[in-house]
């Protein structure tokens, strides 16, 4: 139905729209119907409560625990996704030649610079306490911030 290389217009959506209307119509008919023909007992608080994941917890979890790798994970997201661009380059490596190598080289330099920054700031330190100390040392004191603001 939809030829490749053609611009899309609203007409292309007609079958989808029909499908959508059918779906809405089905819900609109069956929901009231089931209400009509079903029998209902008296309402209790438990019955009215929204159902969510079974029984209520008796006690709160003892405490929140430090997720050591939260910061590392967040950094991983960035570095991981940046690699996307290398795939496009690798797939066309022979054709792109030195032009590709140069551009990817510049790109990699920026990624390395980020890594260096993260490293020097101590964000990769696995020792959470030392990491916190280094962060605190790098951050201004509240007083300095207030004077500066």
């Amino acid at each position: 139905m939809l030829a490749t290389g053609r611009r899309m217009t609203l007409n292309d959506y007609l079958p989808a729209l029909v499908m959508f209307l059918l779906a809405v119509g089905f819900v609109a008919v069956t929901l009231p119907l089931s209400r009509l023909i079903s029998t209902r007992g008296p309402a209790t608080p438990e019955k009215e409560a929204p159902y969510e994941c079974g029984i209520l917890p008796e006690v709160e979890p003892a405490q929140r625990f430090p997720v050591k790798f939260y910061l590392v994970a967040i950094l991983f997201v960035i570095f991981d996704v940046e690699i996307i661009f290398l795939f496009a380059w690798a797939a066309n490596f022979p054709e792109l030649g030195w032009f590709g190598v140069t551009t990817v080289g510049i790109f990699t330099l920026f990624v390395l610079e980020t890594l260096l920054y993260v490293w020097r700031r101590g964000a990769l330190d696995w020792n959470v306490r030392r990491r916190a100390r280094r962060f605190a040392a790098a951050s201004p004191t509240p007083q300095a911030l207030e004077d500066a603001a």
């Binding site: 951050s139 500066a148 603001a149």
Partner: peptide
């Protein structure tokens, strides 16, 4: 500038 310098290493 005072804000920037007040941030220290930041």
């Amino acid at each position: 500038w005072r804000y920037v310098t007040g941030l220290g290493t930041r």
